[in-house]
Design a protein around this nucleic acid. Structure first.
Length: 514
RNA sequence: GCCCCCGUAGCUCAAUGGAUAGAGCAGGACCCUUCUAAGGUCAAGAUGUAGGUUCGAUUCCUACCGGGGGCACCA
């Protein structure tokens, strides 16, 4: 990676090399002189000049020039020669271009969606769902061994409520699917009815939406019920008890989580003998750690944020490192209709399902829509507007570039295999600018795997494609000039590779024709 | 009352403490006898308010004003 190569030239481990957006200040920049002057005293400009000298004396062909600017920035310009060489590199690596090794083969699990099997998936599930899927793709490219897991809450109160809704004892859920389930389930036992219905909802509603519409493949569907059947819930409570974190109060059994950073203690076993959701969740947490993951990612809706301290407390109580857990809280989506907010409620039957959304705008647009937004922002969702705007969506802008590329390559007569194409004729500013975007992919993967911010990748895909469109406008690829044509075709081919790899990470289709 | 998140252009969103705050949509002016005009070029347009830390703040801290969510022997 280029950042690492520059870092080696500077030879200061703590130096941060950042990519510069504005070409005037070079391609990469470091503020190490400003930082070190702050710590050690002295003039940052002098320190910067010293480092500049160090870089230049290394004589690397990576460097075009180095400038000291402003209060003490060191700006580094990459040489065209090096950029052209990167095109070759992309051609050689192909679909492997953009893989990095920051994960070092360690095991990570991402648990996401995990919606209760009591009804269809809705908007909010889309947000966490696409995020989790893309995160998994990114981490896999950063050499993490990734598992995608869906936790199925097929036990507990919500299943009983579903059962009661079906037997007519009490109405908790509404919607056409409830009528449908009622016809198919004969039993008057609400427990049985609930379990049977949950199974149907999972296999006939949730899974088809996830596989068929969202294009997500989970490695595991983990059943909450199985934790009860295997005795793991009991064992987890026993273990907590042995460690002294359980006490009895008012006929219920409590987890003394307040001793471990939670605001208050939490019930594990209710006075009526029922175990709470937290009890099985602690067993689930233990199960995850025991499976040997080096890192756990949990993607939850904002309504679960208060749960973080409980799970951290449980991790501590059981003797696990709570810092191995990354909680990602995605804010809820608000449904807007005719300019006004409509409160979504599964119980009242007011919601937009993911199936509806994807049918209206398509899977690619739906994905991109959610992925461009950082998880912590509150998003407004207007289905009507989404429908209108899907015609003019950024996804089409991106896919159009891919189609253009494919069209050029189809038309071109490529030099025979093994012919050495001379890229030194690539000198146009649009050509070099495009290469600068191509070589960012490995950085994007490394950064996103580190901070789990995947909206960066959608932004990148737009920047990359904009740069290509500009190149297309400025530089005719297939022309009389045979040498130039071949060089540009190579650049177009490299662009296709990088764009395809980027779209693969995002899970968005790359059409040859539009 | 306490805790978490958000407030950026008319609208929807970006921006590891950096330099001139970026896009798309909507609106304005241009560019097709040329590899896909679902494209390109130009102009216009924004950090809720008040302080603080810093060489430097959309970003960190404090207060305030708006909006969302959470504070169960629910999940």
């Amino acid at each position: 990676m280029i950042r690492d190569q520059i870092k080696q030239l500077i030879n200061i481990p703590e130096a941060q090399i950042t990519r510069v957006e504005n070409g005037r200040f070079g391609d990469y920049s470091t503020n190490i002189a400003l930082k070190s002057a702050k710590v050690q005293g002295g003039n940052p400009l002098e320190a910067a000049e010293e480092i500049k000298g160090k870089i230049l004396s290394a004589g690397s062909d990576l460097i075009e020039k180095v400038e000291v600017a402003g209060p003490g920035f060191i700006n580094i310009f990459i040489s065209p020669k090096f950029l052209r060489y990167q095109v070759k590199e992309i051609m050689i690596l192909g679909e492997k271009y953009g893989f990095v090794d920051s994960g070092k083969g360690k095991k990570i699990q991402i648990e996401f969606i995990s919606a209760n099997p009591t009804g269809p998936l809705t908007l909010g599930n889309g947000r966490g769902g696409f995020l989790g899927d893309v995160l998994a793709n990114v981490l896999a490219r950063a050499n993490w061994k990734v598992e995608r897991e869906y936790y199925v809450n097929d036990s507990g109160e919500q299943v009983r409520k579903l059962g009661k809704t079906l037997t007519g004892e009490e109405i908790f859920y509404k919607g056409d699917y409830i009528e449908d389930l009622r016809k198919r389930i004969e039993t008057k036992d609400f427990q049985q009815a609930g379990e049977k219905a949950a199974g149907i909802v999972l296999s006939e509603m949730i899974k088809p939406t996830i596989h068929g519409q969202m294009k997500i493949d989970f490695d595991n569907w983990f059943s909450e019920k199985s934790l009860y059947e295997s005795g793991e819930v009991e064992q987890a409570i026993d273990l907590l008890n042995k460690k002294g974190f359980v006490c009895e109060k008012e006929n219920a059994w409590w987890f003394k989580s307040s001793e471990l950073g939670d605001e208050k203690d939490r019930v594990l076993i209710k006075a009526d003998g029922q175990k709470t959701y937290l009890a099985s969740d602690i067993a689930y947490l233990k199960n995850k750690f025991d499976r040997g993951f080096d890192r756990l990612v949990m993607i939850w809706g904002a309504d679960h944020h208060g749960y973080i301290n409980r799970i951290k407390a449980a991790a501590k109580a059981l003797g696990y490192d709570e810092n191995k857990i990354d909680f990602i809280i995605v804010q809820l989506a608000r449904l807007i209709e005719d300019g006004k907010e409509v409160k979504m409620s599964k119980r009242a039957g007011v919601y937009v399902t993911l199936d509806e959304l994807i049918e209206e705008v398509g899977a690619d647009v739906a994905r991109f829509f959610f992925l461009t937004r950082s998880p912590e922002t509150h998003l407004n969702f207007d289905l009507k507007l989404a429908k209108e705007q899907s015609e003019k969506n950024p996804v089409y802008y991106i896919q159009y570039a891919f189609a253009r590329i494919s069209s050029i390559l189809k038309k071109a007569v490529l030099a025979p295999m093994g012919t050495e194409v001379d890229l030194s004729v690539l000198n146009h500013s649009s050509e070099l600018a495009l290469i600068k975007y191509l070589i960012r992919l490995p950085e994007m993967v490394e950064d996103s795997a580190r901070d789990l911010q995947v909206q960066r990748l959608t932004q990148y895909s737009l920047d990359l494609v904009r740069s290509f469109h500009k190149f297309y406008e400025d530089c005719r690829v297939i022309s009389e000039d045979e040498k130039l044509s071949q060089a540009r075709l190579e650049l177009v081919q490299a662009t296709k590779t990088v764009l395809k790899n980027t779209l693969d990470i995002l899970g968005i289709g790359a059409p040859e024709k539009m």
